[in-house]
């Protein structure tokens, strides 16, 4: 059975791209979220194997969403999506409980490597 993924990003463009990369690699994208609070809600509802989480999102940011999700499920496997130059935020996200991160602009191979590391 393939792994299920929840993709969280406020930009449709980014969500589409990530979903495409993952779908082509055989993952099942079971849901998308465009705000942090939506991500938390969908996580509880869908219980995906993996979450990709943008750091900067409206409403509730990605880092707060990580905290909420980890509070709910300490084993949650969350992969942060970051832009260059967000070192401090990435560090904070990992301290909050994210497992790994990828840096935009995305190269599919790097995304898949990170996903394997998180799931493996």
């Amino acid at each position: 059975m393939s792994h299920t993924v929840l993709v969280c990003d406020d930009a449709i463009f980014m969500r589409t791209m990530i979903s495409d990369i993952l779908a082509q690699a055989g993952f099942e994208v079971v849901g998308e979220a465009e705000t942090g609070s939506q991500a938390v809600e969908r996580y509880k509802q869908l219980k995906p194997d993996l979450v990709t989480m943008d750091i900067v999102m409206p409403d509730m940011g990605g880092i707060d969403a990580v905290r909420e999700i980890v509070k709910h499920d300490p084993d949650a496997k969350i992969l942060m999506c970051s832009a260059m130059g967000q070192q401090a935020l990435v560090v904070e996200a990992i301290q909050a409980g994210a497992k790994d991160f990828v840096v935009k602009p995305f190269q599919p191979s790097r995304v898949l490597e990170a996903v394997q590391r998180v799931l493996g």
Partner: peptide, 13 residues
């Protein structure tokens, strides 16, 4: 490697 600080923290984990 991009954002080395984040990667270092992952390694520490």
């Amino acid at each position: 490697s991009p954002l080395k600080g984040g990667r270092a923290l992952v390694a520490l984990r």
